[in-house]
Design a protein around this nucleic acid. Structure first.
Length: 212
DNA sequence: CCCTGATTCGC
DNA sequence: GCGAATCAGG
């Protein structure tokens, strides 16, 4: 498949949003992640950071490996027109720390730097229908017990750690910090691990409810 | 083992 | 320019 403008555009957009090469490859179809990575490099948008002034690779002397706590801000290019007082020797713009004291619930939890938050907002999990939470209802007590046990040993992975091979069963309340995904190996082809599959996909029995 | 991006190099 | 193979790492 060729890199049409269309596909390149998608590639650029997704890469910019922080999608991985394999995710992009799947989205585009017809290409492997290698192809995507190769293209990314050819396009020159490999690393989203790195100042042009970078080249100072020297000085490995006394600096073992302690990574400098650099503020590391992707910082696109903000044309800031600050009225500079002709006599002022450039005031060191103080970090404006906006202490939110308003009504914003702010459920956001540690998002990796460099990650475009907007891309994480809703679109994720669009594919699989979310499972109904175990409603201690028409589910074999056996399976329920199993799930409870499993949820104690679950890997408790975050949203971003989900892959096609991890159980995507949500545990906890999404509105609180106590929220994570099962994360155990999922049944191939299924979105959940064995235990969760058993409660997610009801055979259809138990429903032999009151027929009338 | 799963995954990530980076690089190489024949095509 | 392309991307499989490979490398290096988490």
């Amino acid at each position: 498949m060729a890199w049409t403008d269309d596909r390149v555009e998608t590639l650029k957009r997704m890469w910019g949003e922080g999608a991985s090469a394999s995710q992009i490859a799947k989205e585009l179809g017809g290409v492997t992640r290698n192809a995507v990575i190769g293209k990314v490099h050819r396009l020159g948008l490999s690393n989203r950071n790195l100042d042009d002034t970078a080249k100072a690779e020297a000085a490995p002397a006394a600096a073992p490996k302690a990574a400098a706590p650099k503020p590391a801000k992707p910082e696109p290019k903000v044309e800031r027109k600050v009225e500079t007082k002709s006599s002022e020797p450039a005031a060191p713009a103080v970090e404006e720390e906006e202490e939110d004291d308003d009504d914003e619930p702010r459920t956001m939890a540690a998002v990796p730097q460099g990650t475009n938050v907007t891309s994480l907002r809703k679109p994720l999990m669009a594919g699989q229908p979310l499972p109904p939470q175990p409603s201690a209802n028409e589910i074999s007590p056996e399976a329920l017990a199993k799930v409870n046990a499993v949820e104690k040993t679950a890997k408790k992975i975050s949203l971003m750690e989900l892959t096609e091979r991890t159980c995507k069963w949500p545990i906890g309340d999404p509105a609180t910090e106590k929220f994570w995904f099962c994360g155990l190996p999922s049944q191939t082809g299924k979105p959940y691990c064995e235990a969760h599959v058993s409660v997610a996909f009801q055979p259809m029995s138990s429903r032999r409810d009151r027929r009338r």
